[in-house]
Amino acid sequence: MRNDINEAHDAEEDISSSGSDESKKRKVVVPGEVIVSGEDYLPGEGAKRLGENIISIRFGLAEELGRVIKVIPIFGAFVPRRNNVIIGRVTDITFYGWLLDIDSASSAFLPIEESPRFVNKNEMEQFLAIGDVVSAKIWSVKSKGIDLTLKGKGLGKLEGGFIFRVIPSRVPRVIGREGSMINLIKDKTGCQITVGQNGWIWIKGDNVDAEIKARKAIEFVTDKVHIEGLTDKVEKWFEENK
């Protein structure tokens, strides 16, 4: 189960728009601010062309990727996308499936057919009751709502442990490049950890102290706005908080 969850993260990281490559040049920009001038550049996500300038349309960190200029947000609510692995909490049970709170603006629905095994319509509550927590994948985002699935590696009901919330835009750094950050925290604490793209994080450890430490380490990571050399800082944090 642990490794499966890892793989789910890694897949997520590959398609996620913002990695944590520390060599890229970044600068803080506000909406309307000129990032670069010149016809050679192309506006990426969070940027647009205005005359000969590329301007920012988000508050965040501007980044040059070759000719493409994009702005990575550092604050803000979760905006769901297809294939995001998220953590959700069951809020209601209907005839056709479960309604979940995934901390997004539209309601999320898990159809009964998308459970990992056959669930009888009369026994839905035995599989997932109100207040239960799952790790699920978004398979469609429509204007009226989000559809989820539990079919996939590392997805399913989460048992034991606890969940807490971080700013969703900080999720990529909690995972780190190819999962480096989250793997470091798992190694140091021995906890199972699942990071939802919606900023909800599940931790389960052998004992309370390990669980508390894993959460504190993650909050140490998310409280930092800048991410240069963050892995080293976290290693050091573990040294200081043995």
């Binding site: 506000v30 909406p31 309307g32 301007i55 988000r58 508050f59 550092i74 835009s169």
Partner: peptide
């Protein structure tokens, strides 16, 4: 609004 990461063309 800017702090919340809402897309804006300007302040």
């Amino acid at each position: 609004l800017a702090h919340a990461g809402i897309p804006m063309r300007d302040l």
